[in-house]
Nucleic acid binder design. Structure first.
Length: 229
DNA sequence: TTGTGATCATCT
DNA sequence: AGATGATCACAA
């Protein structure tokens, strides 16, 4: 693996690289890319994701669009436990409070990112030292009609509340597969939002983000074990 | 400040 | 144990 991986030109090229990563240890990938391995993830929470993206040829960036815009593909690492089940929810995107009123699912950032995802499972059991954790077989995925309907409904219900200025009433319990939780530097963080009553009044609210529930991503992973159907 | 990458730390 | 709410680092 070169220290700097060029951007893949096609999905096939991206998949080839992902398949070559399967079975590799994080420490080996980090060494090949000449990046240090942190002692733990407490102060490097995004390290695994950034490492995998770099190894696949994605540029850093923090724009609200898929990792490979020209391919329309988003890369998501998925921390899995000893059973192979996702340990955490999957962050999808931040929610733009001020644009909630006119937002539509069809043109949303969430849909753009979830239209095509390359899931990369990574061992995350606490018993395995970070450099020894292995990368799993990547799974290219697009939501089927049922999944998209679920995502869309959750998205629309949440965005309606936000557009009405009721974002503070949103709980993590809401949403069948797509939930909304805080996405901020701290609980004191605030962002501006139109209050939605037609008056130009603004209110400061906690920044929120969309997250996929672990049960939803677990179902996607299970497709790996049912490839013959 | 907002968005990216997420995992941490409690609570039920 | 599983999930929710809180938090960490970095780039533009």
């Amino acid at each position: 693996m070169p220290v700097a991986v060029p951007r893949p030109r096609t999905e096939e090229e991206l998949l080839r690289r992902a398949r070559m990563l399967a079975g590799a240890r994080l420490g080996d990938v980090a060494a090949a890319l000449q990046r240090p391995v942190p002692s733990d993830l407490r102060r490097a929470k995004g390290w695994v994701g950034e490492l995998i993206e770099t190894a696949l040829g994605a540029s850093a960036g923090s724009r609200p669009e898929p990792d490979f815009p020209e391919l329309g593909i988003e890369v998501k690492t998925l921390p899995v436990d000893a059973r192979g089940a996702p340990k955490e929810s999957t962050h999808v995107c931040a929610i733009s409070m001020r644009e909630a009123a006119g937002a539509r699912w069809e043109t949303s950032v969430a849909r753009a990112k979830l239209a095509r995802v390359l899931w990369v499972p990574v061992e995350a059991a606490a018993a395995i030292a970070l450099p020894m954790r292995r990368i799993g077989q990547a799974i290219p995925w697009s939501p089927d009609a049922r999944e998209e309907a679920l995502l869309r409904r959750d998205w629309e219900e949440h965005m309606e509340l936000i557009a009405l200025g009721r974002s503070a009433q949103i709980r993590g319990e809401m949403g069948a597969v797509l939930q909304v939780r805080p996405k901020a530097a701290s609980g004191r963080a605030r962002t501006m939002v139109d209050d939605g009553d037609g008056v130009d009044v603004r209110a400061a609210v906690l920044p929120l983000g969309f997250y996929l529930r672990p049960q939803f991503t677990a179902a996607i992973l299970s497709q790996l074990y049912a490839p013959l159907r």
